[in-house]
Design a protein around this nucleic acid. Structure first.
Lengths: 247, 247
DNA sequence: TTAAAAAACGCAACAACATGCACAAATATA
DNA sequence: TATATTTGTGCATGTTGTTGCGTTTTTTAA
């Protein structure tokens, strides 16, 4: 393998994960750690990455890690990574609540300029330190279990918004029953969110596929993208590709 | 995990909670408290956070007094205790932002039934677990330094609210200059809050008395209660009793 | 005042690092 | 083609950065 392509691989890895470890790269590329270190030094000197003790970080180094909820963290990070690929500069985004959305907020690319409306104060607080993002919270009654704002106020505000893209998580997702949830208030808000956005992306961990909750938000064909942590050609996902774009 | 990731995580935690405990971080990040202390020292030396005994605080919530006093919440607890005395069952309350308000939210009596409107997502999230409180967040652009919602949206929503009582903190408070603050957006919001409430209570730690900031919110006679951690008959407070009710 | 918690300090173990060198592969030159 | 030169890589060496642990000192709370 040529030095050039090795370094290209390193950069691509950093773009995906926001960080690399020398030891990992050494195994993946089957070269000594010395070689990796030399590569990282070169890339660092040319300003492409930021070298740190033990590896290197993306130049637009962000919040590459969070240990708050240990459960399914990696899956949610993978989801968030895929989701950011849909975002373009200058977009108006509508963002829901839940741990997956918070993970998405953490991995938000720093160089992206956009306006974000969210029903989740936690998502808002995560995004507020980003220099190029305009964070808007929607008003409403704060729900104790889901920690998002709900109620008629939210619905009416959403009717005044036209977002380019909407990101939301879900509790239930199936081919036949579509997107489902267990909280009536949340269902109402999510319905309104979908109406307010040009395109909607559902973010969900693999395990939630084919699960059904009590109340339906919409059919599967009402959403545009399905983003999970599994590969798009996995067995469970294959059945979804006819109805939505699976990432 | 890389040291930089760890420190980035610490900063993100501080952004959300405004404070962190070394013991918590040690568990969350699975490293010794020594390592956490070293991280906090580094971040503190580079001016990113304010280190205090037991953990660290957000720099954006920078207060003119020592970090020890911030962390030793006795003063704020005393303020919160006095403030809750003004609350009656069934009231509609308007609550501002800042650490004093968060402390008030934490000490909110459990048996009290009331409706709360707040401009601070952090206050909202603190209160949302209380069983008898209806928490409403106001909509607006989230300000990065103060972590409250601001902008014309907030003002217009406030104009539709009639609260029985408004609690707010302040940066400056003096007999001659009244209530003052340093952020223009915050000043506008606070003005509107006072207008929307029947009565207004200013909560402030003793040290802020007789301090003046750049922009005025209102004269002292526009507010009804002044709540501090000092006794009402203390030297500094005596001069205020003619204008407001000092608790 | 006293006991508990947190911090500071020194130390040791270990991982990551820089450096020099040998060797192989690629490239250039005669 | 044969030889010299450059470049890249791995290994051995000593150095430095990072972390955890025991001890002592400081700070806090009762």
């Amino acid at each position: 393998m040529l030095k050039e392509e090795r370094q290209q691989y390193i950069i691509s890895q950093i773009n995906i994960h926001n960080k690399v470890l020398s030891t990992d790269l050494s195994v993946q590329l089957n070269v000594s750690e010395d070689t990796i270190r030399r590569d990282l030094n070169e890339l660092s000197e040319s300003g492409k990455i930021v070298k740190v003790y033990g590896g290197a970080l993306s130049k637009s180094f962000h919040y590459p890690f969070s240990g708050r909820d240990v459960y399914n963290k990696d899956g949610k990070k993978e989801i968030a990574r895929k989701a950011t690929g849909l975002i373009e500069d200058g977009m108006v985004l509508l963002v829901g609540g839940g741990t997956t959305m918070i993970e998405l907020a953490r991995l938000f690319p720093e160089n992206l300029h956009c306006t974000i409306f969210t029903i989740s104060p936690l998502v808002g607080l995560e995004l507020v330190e980003h220099p190029n993002i305009n964070v808007n919270l929607l008003a409403g009654q704060l729900a104790s279990n889901s920690h998002v704002v709900t109620g008629s106020q939210v619905i009416s505000q959403l009717s005044e918004i036209r977002a380019d893209l909407c990101f939301m998580g879900t509790n239930g997702l199936s081919l036949t029953h579509g997107i489902t949830d267990s909280d009536w208030e949340v269902v109402q808000v999510k319905k309104a969110m979908i109406k307010s956005a040009n395109k909607t992306a559902i973010l969900s961990i693999d395990e939630k596929l084919d699960s059904v909750q009590k109340m339906q938000i919409c059919n599967l064909n009402a959403i545009d993208y399905l983003i999970t942590d599994a590969a798009p050609d996995s067995e469970t996902l294959k059945r979804y590709v006819k109805t939505v774009i699976v990432l």
